[in-house]
């Protein structure tokens, strides 16, 4: 579980997040929507332990990960993140990517690569992979460490619709079968409405709307877009 309580964060004295609170349940996907510069990426980075907030707390699986001056190191949080750039290491092969993050228990890296349809590509470097293969490698690497939480920062934004649909389904299947709490940052309103279990709208560093377990009720596109009314023509 991911729980964020009243987190505020500023960079160079400019407020980025103001009093943000939300939560994501295991086996569920929380979609985080918002205009550019709303603070979505900063929030993910704080959850991952790559940034320290000015105030507030982050609780992961009922354990305090960040509070006050205390911040657990990123590698101890059992949290994976897929960046928009995918951040594939250009000097490592596919199998070296997996080996770097792999933990000893459970499914082996080889099985994971087979499941991600990357078998036969073990010795390939990222620049020898197609766009879809790169995305699948990023997902495989994120899963290889057996994370309890998965954060995705617009990883599918540059893909065509068919590939995006396939990868998103693959990702959600992993989240549900492995009981991972996940947050995905997206700009795609329809995608968020259709696929995510919970949904949060972030505007100017604040959570403007938060639907927990939205399956209990139908959220319309109109309802979501109303939150962005003031941003319709840009800020």
């Amino acid at each position: 579980m991911i729980q964020v309580n009243q987190v505020s964060f500023s960079r160079n004295k400019k407020p980025i997040l103001r009093d943000v609170s939300l939560q994501a349940e295991p086996g569920q996907c929380l979609a985080l929507l918002g205009p550019s510069g709303a603070g979505k990426t900063s929030l993910l980075r704080i959850i991952a332990g790559l940034e320290t907030p000015d105030s507030g707390e982050v609780i992961l699986s009922a354990q305090v990960a960040t509070k006050g001056a205390f911040a657990a190191p990123p590698e101890e949080r059992k949290t994976s993140m897929i960046f928009q750039s995918l951040a594939l290491w250009p000097h490592m092969t596919v199998e070296q990517h997996i080996a770097f993050v792999e933990r000893g228990d459970g499914e082996t890296g080889k099985d994971l690569l087979t499941r991600m349809k990357l078998d036969g590509k073990e010795k390939h470097y990222p620049d020898q992979l197609s766009g879809g293969e790169k995305q699948r490698l990023a997902i495989a690497r994120a899963l290889a460490s057996k994370p309890r939480r998965l954060l995705l920062d617009e990883p599918f934004s540059n893909l065509d619709e068919i590939l995006k649909e396939n990868l998103l389904s693959l990702f959600l299947e992993q989240v549900r079968t492995q009981n991972i709490a996940s947050i995905i940052v997206t700009h795609n309103v329809n995608e968020a409405i259709e696929k995510a279990d919970s949904m949060a709208i972030m505007v100017s560093g604040r959570i403007k709307k938060f639907w927990i377990n939205k399956k209990d009720r139908i959220i319309t596109r109109k309802e979501v877009l109303e939150c962005f009314e003031e941003y319709r023509y840009g800020k």
């Binding site: 790559l50 990123p74 993050v101």
Partner: peptide, 21 residues
């Protein structure tokens, strides 16, 4: 690219991230 090092840090300690990435 900052995210290359940060991804490594999510899984391994500072020395391993420095040495391997």
């Amino acid at each position: 690219d900052q995210s290359l090092e940060e991804t490594a840090r999510l899984h391994r300690g500072p020395w391993a991230a420095m040495r391997k990435v």
